[in-house]
Deep mutational scan, measured.
Amino acid sequence: RLIESLSQMLSMGFSDEGGWLTRLLQTKNYDIGAALDTIQ
Rank of each mutant, 00 (worst) to 15 (best):
L10Q: 11
I3Y: 13
E4K: 10
L6M: 07
N29Q: 09
G18D: 12
L6W: 03
S15D: 15
I39E: 00
S11Q: 14
F14Q: 02
R1N: 13
A34W: 06
Q40M: 15
S7V: 11
R23T: 10
E17W: 10
L21S: 00
T22I: 06
T22V: 07
L21F: 05
Q8L: 14
G33E: 15
T27P: 02
S11D: 14
E17F: 10
M12P: 04
G19S: 02
I3S: 14
D37K: 13
L21H: 01
F14H: 02
L36Y: 06
L6A: 00
A34M: 10
G18C: 14
Q8S: 08
L25S: 01
G13R: 00
S15Y: 10
Q26P: 01
N29G: 12
D31L: 06
D16S: 00
D31M: 05
R1F: 09
M9G: 01
S7E: 15
L2G: 06
L21I: 06
S5Y: 10
D37H: 12
K28E: 10
E4I: 11
E17Y: 10
G13V: 06
D31F: 05
S11R: 11
M12I: 06
E17M: 09
Y30A: 08
G13Q: 03
R1Y: 09
S15G: 08
L36A: 04
L36R: 02
D37R: 12
I3D: 12
Q8M: 12
Q8T: 12
T22Y: 01
L6G: 00
T27M: 14
W20V: 04
A35V: 15
S15C: 11
L36M: 10
G13Y: 09
L6I: 07
L2Y: 09
E4S: 11
L25Y: 00
G18V: 06
R1H: 10
I32W: 09
L21R: 00
S15M: 10
I39D: 03
Q40P: 07
S7K: 15
L6S: 00
G18M: 08
T22R: 06
T22W: 05
L36P: 03
E17R: 05
L25D: 02
T22D: 04
Q26F: 05
S11T: 11
L36E: 01
W20D: 04
E4V: 11
F14V: 03
K28M: 15
L24E: 02
K28H: 15
G18F: 09
E17G: 06
D16Q: 04
L25A: 00
I3F: 13
E4Q: 12
F14L: 07
L21K: 00
I3T: 11
R1A: 12
Q40N: 14
M12E: 07
S5K: 08
Q40H: 14
Y30H: 08
L24F: 02
T22E: 07
S5N: 04
I3W: 14
R23F: 09
E17L: 09
G13E: 06
L6N: 00
T27D: 15
T27R: 12
I32L: 07
D16F: 02
L2H: 06
R1I: 10
E17N: 09
Y30T: 05
A35E: 04
I32S: 04
G18R: 04
N29E: 10
T27K: 13
T38N: 08
A34I: 08
R23I: 11
I32M: 06
K28D: 07
Q40S: 12
S7M: 14
D16T: 03
T38F: 15
K28P: 07
L21A: 00
D16Y: 00
M9D: 02
S11N: 13
S11G: 13
G18N: 12
W20H: 04
Q8D: 08
T38M: 12
T27H: 11
L24H: 03
S5A: 15
S11Y: 02
D16E: 03
M12K: 08
R1S: 13
L24A: 02
Q40D: 09
M9R: 01
Q8V: 14
R23A: 13
M9T: 00
L21Y: 00
E17K: 06
S15T: 15
W20Y: 08
Y30M: 10
Y30S: 07
R23L: 11
D16M: 01
L24M: 05
S5M: 11
L36H: 03
S11W: 03
L6H: 00
G13F: 08
D37A: 14
G19I: 01
E17H: 10
I3Q: 15
L2M: 08
R23M: 10
M9V: 03
G19M: 04
W20N: 03
I32A: 04
S7W: 09
A35Y: 04
Q8N: 10
L24R: 00
T22K: 03
L25E: 02
S5Q: 09
L21P: 00
W20F: 06
A35W: 08
I39A: 04
L24Q: 01
Y30L: 09
M9L: 13
G13L: 09
L2N: 05
M9Y: 03
R1W: 11
L6Y: 02
D31Q: 03
G18T: 08
Q26Y: 06
G19H: 07
Q8A: 13
Y30K: 05
M12D: 05
D31P: 05
S5R: 05
Q40T: 13
D37Y: 06
Q8F: 11
L36N: 02
G13S: 03
S11P: 04
D37F: 05
L21V: 05
L36I: 10
Q40G: 10
D37I: 14
I39T: 03
A35H: 03
E17A: 09
Q8E: 12
L2A: 08
D16G: 02
M9H: 02
Q40F: 14
D31Y: 04
N29Y: 10
M9P: 00
E4G: 09
Q8Y: 10
I3V: 13
G18A: 08
L2S: 06
E17T: 12
G19Q: 05
T22F: 00
L25F: 01
G33D: 15
L36W: 07
Q40R: 15
D37S: 12
T27V: 12
Q40I: 13
L10K: 11
A35T: 12
R23Q: 11
L36F: 06
A34F: 07
L24P: 01
Q40W: 10
G19P: 01
L25V: 02
R23E: 12
L2P: 05
L10G: 06
M12Y: 07
Q26V: 13
L2Q: 05
Q8P: 03
I39S: 01
A34E: 10
I39N: 01
T38I: 13
G33S: 14
N29F: 10
S15L: 10
E4P: 07
R23S: 10
E4R: 10
L21N: 01
I32T: 06
G33W: 14
N29R: 05
G13T: 02
Q26L: 11
K28A: 12
G19A: 03
I3E: 15
F14R: 00
L6F: 03
L10M: 11
L2V: 07
S11I: 12
G33V: 14
Q26G: 08
T27I: 14
G19R: 02
G19D: 06
L10F: 08
G33P: 11
L21T: 00
D31N: 07
L6E: 00
L10D: 05
L2W: 07
L10E: 11
L25P: 01
T27Q: 15
K28Y: 13
E17D: 12
D16A: 03
I39P: 03
L25I: 05
L6T: 00
L36S: 01
L36Q: 03
I39Y: 03
I3P: 09
D16R: 01
A34D: 09
K28I: 14
M12Q: 08
L24G: 00
T38A: 15
L25W: 00
S7I: 12
M12W: 09
D37Q: 14
Q40V: 13
L6R: 02
G18H: 09
G33A: 15
T22Q: 05
G33H: 13
G19W: 04
L10P: 02
L10N: 07
T27G: 11
T38K: 08
G13I: 09
W20R: 02
Y30F: 13
L21M: 05
